[in-house]
């Protein structure tokens, strides 16, 4: 088949192609190539194939779909050569079986991709609370610190523990302690914004990095989290959180070192909260 690059008109066509689409040669000659191709093939041609033909002069083994007179879709493979002036020379053959094989390969690949995404999620999520694990949180926090070094924004961090967890674990076992953390995590989750990085930092501690939030904003969040945790009863008593809250000063240092400083300051604030009997938020000012 020969088509005009500029007008998209079919200039010559052979009997094989006419038969493939269920029509006569004379009906195709002079028609637009756009009437022969499916809409998806048309987008692919216009956005990708024509530019590369103009650039390289040839395109091989293109898989496209032609529409028959009865609106049926026939997969084809085409080699197209541009003569440098205005004509495109097409060599076309039906590719029904090849299309089936490719479809099966695509489906197998999609399944593999979904599995890989699932594995990646499993590797970054704490199974008890569904918060991020330390590894995943670390990567995200470092990115936020690097971004904040470029475009300044207030940052705060909260380190907290569930005060009753250790006792529950010792007296009632790991499964009950995990159940407590899971309950509290589910209650707290709706209070976080999409930009907050919420993680189970280690076995006992949780770390939250709040982007574009002042200490005053975050203090309100801490009060809310305390109130929510208090709705969970353990052995007839309200649960409570010990919380350390710090304002993060983003200096032009290596974000990894910066993160170490954040952790030690938040830890220190948390320690003061615990030492004071728990169930309260301590703000580390400097």
């Amino acid at each position: 088949m020969v088509t005009d690059l500029h007008s998209r008109e079919i200039m010559q066509v052979n009997a094989y192609i006419a038969e493939l689409v269920g029509t006569e040669k004379m009906d195709l000659t002079g028609a637009s190539i756009t009437s022969l191709l499916s809409k998806a093939s048309l987008i692919f041609m216009e956005s990708y194939v024509y530019p590369s033909l103009l650039d390289m002069g040839i395109h091989s083994e293109l898989q496209l779909t032609v529409m028959t007179q009865n609106e049926q879709r026939i997969p084809i493979v085409a080699n197209i050569r541009f003569d440098g002036a205005q004509s495109l020379y097409w060599s076309i053959f039906s590719a029904v079986e090849r299309d089936k094989l490719y479809q099966e390969l695509i489906e197998a690949r999609d399944q593999l991709e979904q599995q890989a995404i699932r594995l990646s999620e499993l590797a970054s999520i704490d199974p008890v609370t569904s918060f991020l694990n330390q590894r995943a949180a670390q990567t995200k926090i470092i990115n936020v610190l690097a971004q904040t070094q470029r475009v300044p924004a207030p940052l705060t961090a909260i380190m907290f523990i569930v005060d009753q967890r250790l006792d529950v674990q010792q007296q009632l076992g790991q499964a009950v302690a995990d159940g407590l953390l899971n309950n509290i995590a589910e209650l707290l989750r709706p209070s976080f914004r999409a930009v907050d990085i919420v993680s189970r930092w280690n076995d006992s501690k949780f770390l939250i990095m709040c982007y574009d939030a002042t200490v005053e904003d975050t203090q309100i969040l801490c009060d809310k989290l305390q109130a929510l945790a208090a709705t969970v009863m353990v052995d007839g008593k309200k649960s409570s959180l010990s919380m350390g809250l710090i304002s993060v000063s983003v200096t032009p240092r290596d974000p990894i070192q910066l993160l170490d400083t954040i952790i030690s300051k938040a830890d220190a604030a948390l320690y003061i909260s615990q030492a004071s009997g728990g169930g309260q938020t301590v703000v580390f000012e400097h």
């Binding site: 809409k39 998806a40 987008i43 692919f44 898989q63 490719y102 479809q103 390969l105 695509i106 690949r109």
Partner: peptide, 21 residues
């Protein structure tokens, strides 16, 4: 100019044309 089905088919077509497995 296009229905969602046309664009879904486009992605499928791209898959078949870029067998960069």
């Amino acid at each position: 100019g296009f229905e969602k089905a046309d664009l879904e088919e486009l992605l499928n077509l791209m898959d078949k044309n870029h067998v960069g497995w």
